[in-house]
């Protein structure tokens, strides 16, 4: 797939996309928030054969659908966001996790896994940057920061009480 980005001064930005299947598509993002998607004739790359206009909210919605964000398969409980090597990951503490009742300090997460718990989201409160005295309780969501290996180790530690 190739993407060519061009400025359209006074209008917005144009993204010309040629897909692996040979289709040509142009997306114009207008300065006023409108998006237009043009589909070009495969035999005549100057003529568009169909187009769709979306307003800002619609475009975001479509982007979500295309990106797989609007429909997340049940199997994937966790969502990842990659920042170079660093990964944020968040997951729910299961009822049978071994770490329940222990504090972050007890578990020695930082030292054992290298990952850091940067937030805990409970039913009715959010703990940012929790201290070592914070107790793991079932049902809360833990946000972990580290590289992939560290984050995975941290998950193991909480679930099984050891690595």
């Amino acid at each position: 797939m190739s993407i060519k980005e061009t400025e359209l001064p006074g209008i917005g930005k144009k993204f010309q996309i040629e897909t692996r299947s040979g289709d040509k598509m142009v997306i114009v993002v207008h300065d006023d928030g409108r998006r237009e998607i043009y589909h070009f004739d495969n035999n005549d790359l100057e003529e568009s054969i169909s187009m769709v206009t979306l307003d800002d909210a619609e475009a975001r919605c479509v982007a979500g659908i295309l990106g797989g964000m609007a429909y997340v398969p049940k199997a994937l409980e966790t969502v990842e966001m990659a920042l170079d090597d660093m990964v944020f990951e968040w997951y729910k503490v299961e009822k049978d996790a071994q770490a329940i009742g222990k504090t972050i300090g007890d578990l020695d997460i930082r030292k054992k896994t290298g990952a850091a718990i940067i937030a805990i989201i409970k039913k009715d409160e959010k703990v940012l940057n929790p201290g070592p005295e914070e107790i793991i309780t079932p049902g809360e969501t833990i946000v972990v920061l580290g590289d992939r290996k560290q984050v995975k180790a941290c998950k193991e530690l909480i679930l099984h009480g050891g690595i």
């Binding site: 359209l8 001064p9 006074g10 209008i11 144009k14 237009e36 070009f40 568009s48 187009m51």
Partner: peptide, 16 residues
């Protein structure tokens, strides 16, 4: 609806 056409780049460039 001509914003996606190739020559539109030239037209806007001329305006610039």
């Amino acid at each position: 609806k001509r914003t996606a056409r190739p020559e539109t780049e030239m037209i806007l460039g001329l305006m610039l």
